[in-house]
């Protein structure tokens, strides 16, 4: 029985300009720098002052959400609306300053996968490193390595450093690794993409069985088609608030209405 529950969740980011992060400015309180700090603006979250007097961006505020087995939630909203923040909060990375988050089930998060890849490591080392860091046993890792090798069709290249890979081959590897383990709760920032035409169909099939196997899936996206294809409910985020919540088509319509209203 898997579950994600958010109750009145509020998440604030402290704003540190370059000066604000240094001890010098903390001690000298340079007024010019303070002024510059106060002009920082991010798209999205409201900029306020918290109880200790620090400037903060309020990335999420009063977010209530309850997800159970079988839920396929799509998150949409403008840049900075809080999509990535809510995913990271669900993953337990950001602990809320107010409210509560309860999750049951092992969380697989598929964001930032490629950022930490080492281009000098071989494909096999990468598979192994990923697997072990996710807490798998060396035996499990070896079993998956075989399966990933078959799926990616990289063959001998798995013994070569990633710097010798083409962009498409890297995508194959990243995709293969990402989808090699059956998730309980799956969190994604955009649907992971997939290589050339011949690979595309197999990738789609694998992605489908991967997502179908998940107890709960949450995906943040800018594409209505992805919502229609993979999700059974959706949330529209706006400035850190839930602006609309419900069936996929209704939420997409609401977003369209807002975009059109903004144009006028």
């Amino acid at each position: 029985m898997y579950e994600i529950t958010l109750k009145k969740v509020r998440i604030e980011f402290p704003i540190y300009d370059q000066g604000g992060r240094s001890l010098r400015d903390m001690l000298l309180l340079n007024p010019v720098r303070r002024q510059i700090a106060s002009t920082v603006r991010l798209v999205g979250g409201e900029i306020t002052t918290n109880s200790s007097g620090n400037r903060v961006v309020c990335a999420l505020d009063g977010v209530d959400l309850h997800l159970v087995d079988g839920d396929r939630l799509g998150l949409i909203g403008h840049n900075g609306a809080g999509k990535t923040t809510i995913l990271r909060a669900m993953a337990g990375i950001y602990e809320p300053v107010a409210g509560e988050i309860v999750t049951r089930g092992e969380i697989t998060s598929l964001f930032g996968m490629t950022e930490s890849m080492d281009i000098d490591a071989t494909g096999y080392e990468t598979i192994r490193l990923r697997g072990l860091m996710l807490g798998r046993s060396p035996k499990e890792v070896n079993d998956t390595a075989q399966e990933i090798a078959d799926f990616t069709e990289l063959g001998e290249y798995l013994n070569m450093p990633l710097r010798t890979y083409s962009a498409g081959m890297l995508v194959r590897l990243a995709f293969g690794i990402a989808t090699s383990h059956q998730p309980e709760i799956l969190l994604m920032d955009e649907i992971i993409g997939a290589g050339d035409a011949s690979f595309f169909d197999r990738a789609q099939a694998r992605l489908k069985s991967f997502i179908d196997a998940a107890g709960i899936m949450v995906v943040a996206t800018h594409h209505p088609d992805i919502l229609r294809r993979w999700c059974n409910k959706a949330i529209l985020l706006s400035n850190g608030h839930i602006a609309a919540h419900g069936a996929v088509e209704d939420v997409i319509t609401e977003q369209m209405r807002r975009v059109n209203a903004a144009k006028k």
């Binding site: 993953a91 990375i93 969380i107 697989t108 998060s109 964001f111 930032g112 950022e115 930490s116």
Partner: peptide
């Protein structure tokens, strides 16, 4: 940071 912002 890449590891810490990726999962808990």
């Amino acid at each position: 940071s890449t590891y810490l912002l990726q999962c808990k």
